[in-house]
Nucleic acid binder design. Structure first.
Lengths: 264, 264
DNA sequence: ACCTTGGTTTCATTATGTGAAACTAGGTTT
DNA sequence: AAACCTAGTTTCACATAATGAAACCAAGGT
């Protein structure tokens, strides 16, 4: 399951390089890798030839390659909620005048798909594609809360429960309690759990079948407002979420997970 | 060269699926593919398992997967000019009040890396990652003009020279003439060659060594201005480009191509 | 001149990918 | 309903391609 075939291994290497967030040397990758030296070397070569990685011969470093940017554009337009949600997110952003996030659950992480920053706009790519922990973000908890039990277990399993702030939930038990609160309410908050001073309300985007398609959040700072203030956005968030869900349905956004295909 | 190993083949398939720009069925891919049925089938399975592709079991279609979005985020931040250029592009955009593009040459295509749309902002990812033809865009021609002869030949070789508008350059000869004009001037235009009514000025971003790092352009419409009007932006474009080049240098942006590594 | 560290190449061994052919599930025609 | 497609999936003997221990090379350092 971990790796299917050579391709899986190569992608594992690609992921690893991307994870560093900065150009890395061969030896660094090697040290962290489970592959023996020549094998890893060949993977890096192949990926570089394929422009999935870029190699800087001067510094002898590898970093993720431009080919990915092109591919991701296609992925973003076809396999995410972003294009469907765009007009609704725009409207929401305009109405609330605060930062709005659109996220999906990928793997066991929160993947930010789109963002509107009311004040200084722009800089989307820098945010879209970003990943965050599921256990201490508004969108993460909300998506998790409405996932099926098996997924919840699997995801919780993979969380680090690193303490970012004093408010961070650091145990599976605390998180599970929070999740059932969220299920009861229909929405959730981030109470400075990830970054001090940063709070948000998050709303799941649910399909008719009750499946989690993604989540929306409105983010602000404790200096500007408080949880009660954010809670006033719940109706419009609710409305936006259901509109997105409706459009996603009619556009026939896949309601199922890609069923686990029997690998090798 | 065409394909190095299994990984290369798999990525070829991935590219092919992404190129459709919409979910595709197995048989469609098969028809266009050089791989025999079971081989292709296995590749699609592997890529799906790896979430490089997403499979919709209802419609039996494949589309690029979300994992790419995450990877691309890293690529965008590390292997493109975008993060370095961002402040300068912001400033340029604010100064000219027109749409600004930042592009790099990838393969034989123009890859848009960043964009500022003065009026209705946002919607970057939808643009970043987008590709366009090199022979009939301002940025494409400008980057090509300052590339080394071998690259020029190779790129021209791969152009389709499809006629988009009456002004499109449709022959290698016409393009070569245009390129030497651009070299002489130091910048270039798009004279409605790609889309009617759309014109732009483009400026190459050159390293100290004279290597093409990317290109900037200011785009407008014939209803708002004309080529002479756009030409007035040349000084600020020049300035912006050289600032980006400077920063790229000091940040040690790879000045060389990833040297062709001897594949299998 | 002699190590050491980091990167690259070789090559016999073995695992993996390969694809013709056979199979299955829906749908359509006779 | 039986025969017949068409599109997708599985099998399996075979060949190719991946593997990694070991050897090699190139810089720097001592």
């Amino acid at each position: 399951m971990t790796s299917d075939g050579t391709v899986g291994k190569a992608l594992e290497v690609l992921d690893q390089v991307a994870a560093y967030g900065r150009p890395v040397r061969f030896s660094e990758v090697l040290a962290a890798s489970s592959f023996p030296k020549p094998t890893l070397y060949r993977f890096l070569q192949t990926l570089t030839n394929q422009r999935m990685l870029a190699y800087d011969p001067d510094r002898q470093t590898y970093s993720p390659g431009v080919r990915l940017v092109r591919l991701a554009h296609a992925a973003w337009e076809q396999s995410t909620l972003a294009p469907i949600a765009r007009p609704h997110v725009d409207a929401l952003s305009a109405a609330v005048g605060e930062t709005v996030h659109l996220a999906q659950l990928d793997h066991a992480q929160v993947l930010y798909i789109d963002k509107r920053n009311a004040n200084n706009p722009v800089q989307m790519f820098s945010q879209a594609g970003k990943v965050g922990p599921a256990y201490c973000t508004g969108v993460g908890k909300v998506m998790l809360a409405f996932s099926d039990p098996a997924t919840i277990d699997a995801v919780i399993e993979q969380q680090s429960f690193h303490r970012f702030t004093a408010a961070t939930l650091t145990t599976p038990t605390a998180l599970r309690t929070e999740l059932s609160d969220i299920r009861a309410n229909g929405y959730g908050f981030d109470r400075e759990e990830h970054e001090p001073g940063i709070i948000c309300v998050a709303m799941p985007i649910l399909s008719d079948g009750g499946r989690v398609l993604g989540a929306l959040s409105v983010t602000s700072t404790t200096s500007r407002t408080n949880l009660a203030g954010l809670e006033s956005y719940v109706p419009i968030l609710q409305d936006t979420a259901s509109k997105i869900a409706r459009d996603a349905q009619s556009w026939s956004f896949p309601d199922h997970d890609a069923k686990e295909q029997t690998g090798r």
